[in-house]
Amino acid sequence: MNRRVSRGIAEGVTVVIAAVVAFPLYWMVLTALKPDAEVISTDPRPWTLAPTLDSFVRALTVQSFGRYLLNSIVVAVAVVLLSLLISFLAATALTRFRFRSRTTLLIMLLVVQMVPVEALTIPLFFLMQSVRDVAPVFGLNHLGSLVLVHLAFSLPFAIWMLRGFVAAVPVELEEAATLDGASRSRFLWSVLFPLVAPGLVATSVLSFIHAWNDFLFAKTFIISAAENQTLPLALQVFVKPDQNDWGAIMAGSTLMTIPVLVFFILVQRRLVAGLAGAVKS
């Protein structure tokens, strides 16, 4: 009896804490759905009786938020695809082959993950300035510059994590495939690639979130080309010195948070398995 009471109390406390933790997100969605007059009220209520999509319409039309949404998607998807391809090849090289400098490379991968990328804004800014003169699409003010830096930032961890998955595929399988007459590249793409799919999913999600959430590099690189801005910066468009359009800001935040949230929920199992795989290797 005593045990059940104490468990009941613990569960009550748990639910209250969960409500507090989720409250900012509830408030975001609620504000996005409130009519304007209720948003800028000095007497805010935690509910609304007249939900409306006005704020979403305003966000998507007035400040061409849709364009920024598309930019964010382009950058994130490009980063995911490129990092998938490059990290898969690198992870295969690091697990399936023995060569000198292999251990050195592995240690470099670990160390590079620890470099605070924020400190690299200054040299990367100048690098992108020079790149602009050679290949404008990958230079300052263009989405290509964001793709490049986020690709570089997500690669070390992606390679590190995929290593475990590639290593888990038995070598006998490769021998069998070779005996059956499969070429090396055929084995790589038709056998190995599908087999490490769970690892690829986990690394893709992390690369996506990384590129999607970036505020600093979008702010530094996209200086004078408003049409090439991404979502995190576009949110700041609604922040005005005199009067913030909170309804539109919250609608924008909602649009920005939903894809990440969906990804997180969809892959949380695989993500945990992937992280466990990376640690176990």
Binding site: T14, V15, I17, A18, A19, V21, A22, P24, L25, W27, M28, I209, W212, N213, F215, L231, P232, L235, V239, I249, M250, S253, M256, T257, V260, L261, F263, F264, I265, Q268
Partner: peptide
């Protein structure tokens, strides 16, 4: 609890700060 925490975890830093 985990679902609520997952939401806080997944919220992009810019969006979270603004909220």
């Amino acid at each position: 609890l985990f679902l609520a925490a997952l939401g806080a975890w997944a919220t992009p830093a810019v969006a979270g700060s603004t909220i």
